[in-house]
Nucleic acid binder design. Structure first.
Lengths: 104, 104
DNA sequence: CTTGACACCTCGATGATCAATGTATAGATC
DNA sequence: GATCTATACATTGATCATCGAGGTGTCAAG
C-alpha cells in the first residue's frame, strides 16, 4: 500500500469526507510530508470504492454536488494492518534517534 | 524522499555496506514492508554518491569486487530530517490506534 | 462581472520501482 | 570436472504511482 492510500484511509477513519477535503486533511495530518494532489486521490478513491474499502453518497451543498466517502470495515482492517507495520518499523527506527543526535 | 531512499540511509547509519547487503538489511529493518530490488537500489546509490550523501570504496573479497558504501554527514543530516518527519507523523498516527482497536 | 474558493474530473508526462536478464567468481555437491 | 547455488555488480523495458495542467460548473465577495 502506498503512503497516499494509507493516509487517505487514515483521515477517513476520523470522519466521512469528500475528496477535496481529504487532500487538505492528509496534508495536515502528515505535516505537509505527504500531500497527494487531485490527480492522485480521485483515482485512488474510485479504486477504494470498487474494492469495498470505502462507500460514498452524494450530497448537494448550496448547489454544489459532493461525493462523501465513508470508510468500511474492510478499509479499517486494511488500515489497521498498515498501521501495525508502521509502528513495527517505528520501533526499529527509534534505535537510530540517538545515533543521528550524536552526529548532527 | 522516497521510502526506499530513507531506509537505505537508515541501514547505512549502522555500518558501511555493499549494495547487495543493503537490500537484505532494508528488508530486515522494515520487516519485509519495504524491500527495494536491485534495479531500485543501484540507481539510488549512484544518485547518493553523486549528491554526496554517501561515499564508496572498492573492496575485493575472495576474487569478487565490491563497492562498500559509507554514509556522509550530508547523508546523516538528510536522514535526520526524514526521521523527524517520521516521528512527527507517528505521533498523530498514535491517535488512530485506539480507534482501529475498537472497530476491528 | 471578474476573481477566488469550492468541488468534481481527466490526461499526458514524469518518476519510482520491479522483473528479467546478463556477467563473473567461489564454493559446495554430485 | 561439471553443475548448481550464493554472492555481487549492473542494465533494460515494463509497469505503477504521482504530479501538473487543464477542463467543468457553482457560489460569494469585491
Amino acid at each position: 500500500m502506498s503512503l497516499s492510500k494509507f493516509f487517505i484511509l487514515c483521515v477517513l477513519l476520523e470522519r466521512p469526507m469528500h475528496g477535496y477535503d481529504i487532500t487538505s486533511a492528509v496534508e495536515q495530518k502528515t505535516d505537509g510530508c505527504c500531500s497527494p494532489k487531485e490527480g492522485t486521490i480521485y483515482p485512488i478513491l474510485r479504486q477504494f470504492a470498487d474494492g469495498g474499502y470505502v462507500t460514498f453518497y452524494l450530497e448537494t451543498v448550496s448547489g454544489r454536488e459532493r461525493k462523501v466517502y465513508t470508510i468500511t470495515d474492510k478499509g479499517r482492517k486494511a488500515f489497521k494492518i498498515g498501521l501495525e507495520e508502521w509502528m513495527k518499523i517505528t520501533k526499529s527506527l527509534e534505535l537510530c534517534v540517538p545515533i543521528v543526535e550524536r552526529c548532527c
